[in-house]
Computed example of a mutant assay.
Amino acid sequence: MKYITEYRDKELAKKLVADIAKEARPDRNYRLMEFCGGHTHVISRYGLEGILPKNVRMIHGPGCPVCVMPIGRIDSAIELALEHGVILCTYADTMRVPASKGLSLMKAKAQGGDIRMIYSAADCLDIARANPDRNVVFFAIGFETTTPATAVVLKQAKAEGLKNFFVFCNHVLTPPAMRHILKNQEKVQIEGFVGPAHVSTIIGSEPYETFAKDYSKPVVIAGFEPLDMLQSILMLIRQINRGEAKVENEFTRAVRPEGNMKAIRMMEEVFALRDSFEWRGLGSVPKSALKLSDAYSDFDAEKHFNLVYRSVPDNKACECGAILRGEKQPSDCRAFGTVCTPESPIGSCMVSSEGACAAYFTYGRHKR
Rank of each mutant, 00 (worst) to 15 (best):
V97F: 04
I127F: 02
G47Q: 06
T174A: 11
P53N: 11
A177N: 08
H304K: 15
I87E: 03
T146C: 04
M261Y: 03
E278C: 00
Y363H: 14
C124P: 05
P26A: 15
K54P: 03
R57F: 01
M266V: 07
A99S: 15
A151S: 14
I59K: 00
Y119L: 10
S293P: 08
L230Y: 01
G85V: 10
T145K: 00
S100Y: 01
N55F: 01
T5L: 13
E191S: 14
E49Q: 15
G204F: 05
A24F: 04
T338M: 03
R334F: 02
G37F: 07
V17L: 10
A140Y: 00
V247H: 04
A121D: 10
R28I: 12
D298W: 07
E209Q: 15
K262A: 13
T150Q: 01
C318K: 03
K183I: 00
H180L: 05
D294L: 01
N29M: 08
A18T: 11
G204I: 10
Y296L: 01
V172D: 00
K101L: 10
L182N: 03
N249S: 09
N131C: 09
Y119T: 07
M95D: 07
I59V: 15
A254D: 12
D314I: 12
A151Q: 03
K328Y: 05
I181F: 07
L125C: 05
M1R: 13
N164I: 10
F193R: 09
P132W: 03
R45F: 06
E225H: 15
